[in-house]
Amino acid sequence: MNTPQANAAATRMTYREACKQALREALLSDSRVFLMGEDIGRYGGCYAVTKGLLEEFGEERIRDTPLSESAFVGAGVGAAMAGMRPIVEIMTVNFSLLALDQILNNAVTIPHMSGGQFAIPLVIRMATGGGRRVGAQHSRSLEGWYAHIPGLRVLTPATVEDARFMLKGALADPNPVIIFEHVMLYNMEGDLPSDMEKVDIAHAKLRRAGRDVSLITYGGSLFKALEAADALAAEGIDAEVIDLRVLRPLDTKTILDSVAKTRRCVIIDEGWRSGSISAEIGMRIAEEAFFELDAPLRRVCSREAPIPYAAHLEDACLPQVATIVAVARELVRPS
């Protein structure tokens, strides 16, 4: 993992391990916390995030569920209303559509609709994104859809430190929080500073400072953007990389500050372009920083098709480093 700054006092670990340590800490620190989801127990989690937790915490707190997304997500909502702090794992965002009613009509609606009588302190984790050659129904990126919904906090940890500590912030939030873990990140390694204990879950973060163009992204595209920035640097273009981290509520200030500095912006989003979080970000820049811009806003998004299985087609559909480089270069040095 291309971690921005090396730290002497740091532990190297995978993103998967960071997710697991976060869950373990949550279970140890609060008896109201329990986990529910498909194959999180005996199987160890389909991405092996929860491996070992059943043995350590037992069946009451590590609950394997049947393939009933609506029921177990709704059970999470009900349990949160009645005093628990459930962490529900939906295997992938694709399957979360089967539970969308519970998320939208219950989890995010009941606090407001009940006049503030109930909060829903529920955390839902799910894998997201493409790149594993598993076809359309396992490769979607719907984070932007969820970011449309008032009442949700939408987190997209892209680094080991965020994977390790965002959960703690999510559990402290009295509102429903969705954590999207990009499937291509689980095996990536990074350094976790030894003295780190928490991260905020409200702000975007500058991952690389630059003067010429802002690359604004999140989740699985962060490392593509950082790689693109390296390539651009070799050409003498100084790119800044902003990791959104939180898609809702969106940290508009960090975005605007960056654009005010670089005056050029490429938004990289694995979601489809139309009606996407990239569209929202672009519009906020247009509304609030239009006169700061020296060039039109640009986006690198997924092609508007279901993600195909064949490797060359999947690669063509997803944002790639070469495309980001080309789009950024064209902004800075128009041909």
Binding site: E60, G74, G76, M81, A82, G83, Q102, N106
Partner: peptide, 18 residues
């Protein structure tokens, strides 16, 4: 939402039991 309350019942009952 017809049927929408049934999963909530699971959660409330589970929370009480736990």
């Amino acid at each position: 939402i017809v049927g929408g309350g049934l999963p909530l019942a699971l959660g409330v009952a589970l929370a009480d039991k736990m």
